Amino acid sequence: MIDVGALRALRSVAALGTLARAAEDLGFTASAVSQQIKRLERQVGVPLLAPAGRGVVLTLAGQALVDSAPDVFHALERCAESARSVAEGAPRGTLRVVSFSTGIRGLLAPIMERVSTRCPDLRMHITEQEPDQALHDVDTGSADLALLHDADGLPVHLPTSLTQRRIHTDVGDVVMHRTHPLARLDLPLTSDDLAGHAWATSPPRTVCYQWFRRLVADLPEDPDVRHLIDDFSTQLSLVASGEVIALIPRLARPPLRDDLVVRPLRRPPKREVHAAWRHSAHASPAIHAVLAELQRTENAGSHLA
């Protein structure tokens, strides 16, 4: 009989490239992962790894075993989910959720109390992960449900083992001090309205910085960017000085101070947020309970400015 834990370890080595990175991903030591794979080699009767410099590579037999592994994991998960579904479909146990930071703040945190009330036997365990790592965690079984955002409008590439559902559209607004000249404008702002004003914005290579550059792309002069800050609460503390304005996603926006105001944009930047889970876990009452609460929040329009 093949050791399922050892098979998962081999698959992690294949995905991450080294025993050390696989060990970190699985929460073991590199020595423990090595022992698991040696045990798996004894069970199947052929070498699965070969030395390559200071690292290892999969043998052809090892790659064949990894290619077949998803079928094994999915079959086992379907067995477990069928058993859970028989128990009156009651959500129970621990649901491991991975999400980007503002998805936790704006989508998951607001539903925690409702999930706890409606599903007293269900516990959510949330870990912050960027979309690529979140997909890996769900695909390999380290997590059950992921919240993902598209990267600058480009859809996330979903493995064939996963399914997804759109749960929210996040929108960016401009935030300013109530004494700022733009605060006197009630209509949605155009890019022309933004000319000549100073900014606090997210650093380069972030989605929100790409939003910002697209927003000001048609202005005749380069924008006056005075602060590059990754944390949105810190951006807002600078906005409160009255010196700068900031482009803030609604999911990332904490409750505002009384001296700050929000103005929507005529052509706001947007990103789609999806939930993703394994096909084999589709019968999970826990996943559907959380999706239902996310849908209730979306239908209620809680994230509108």
Rank of each mutant, 00 (worst) to 15 (best):
S284R: 00
S99H: 01
P249M: 03
R21Q: 09
S280K: 02
R253F: 07
T102P: 02
R205A: 15
D186K: 13
R11K: 04
I126D: 07
A292C: 06
W211I: 01
D259E: 14
V244K: 02
R205Y: 11
P188A: 03
Q35K: 15
G172T: 11
A52G: 07
F28G: 08
E81R: 07
Q295M: 10
L247E: 08
A283F: 07
P220F: 02
L265C: 02
A64W: 10
D192S: 13
L76Q: 12
A83D: 09
Q36H: 11
S241L: 12
R257P: 08
L215A: 04
A20H: 10
D222Q: 13
Y209P: 01
V171W: 10
Q235A: 05
E41R: 06
K270N: 11
Q295E: 15
I37S: 03
D25I: 00
L162P: 01
A75T: 12
E221W: 06
N299W: 10
R84K: 14
L145D: 03
P268L: 04
I111F: 03
D222Y: 03
L304G: 13
G196Q: 09
L26G: 00
R78K: 11
R266L: 13
R42W: 11
V175M: 09
A30Y: 04
L60H: 12
H168K: 06
D150F: 00
P204L: 09
Q295K: 12
R205I: 07
M1N: 12
L189H: 01
R78N: 04
A22K: 01
T94K: 10
R165C: 02
H279C: 00
L26Q: 04
T59V: 08
V239I: 05
A183I: 08
A61E: 14
A246P: 10
L162D: 02
A289Y: 06
A14R: 04
P70D: 06
A246F: 05
R178E: 13
G27F: 12
K38F: 09
L10E: 04
M112G: 03
V66H: 09
S68M: 13
I37M: 06
S161G: 04
R226Q: 15
A305T: 12
E113Y: 09
P255I: 05
A109E: 14
A240E: 14
D192R: 14
I126G: 04
W211K: 01
R54N: 11
H288L: 10
P131H: 02
P204K: 07
V4C: 05
Q133P: 02
M112V: 12
S284D: 05
S302G: 08
L256Y: 05
S68T: 11
E298P: 07
H227L: 14
A90L: 12
V56P: 00
H177Y: 09
M1T: 11
P159E: 03
D186P: 02
L182R: 02
L228T: 10
A292I: 00
S142I: 07
R257G: 14
R226Y: 06
V225Y: 06
A252S: 15
R296A: 15
D230I: 13
A281Y: 01
S116R: 15
D192M: 07
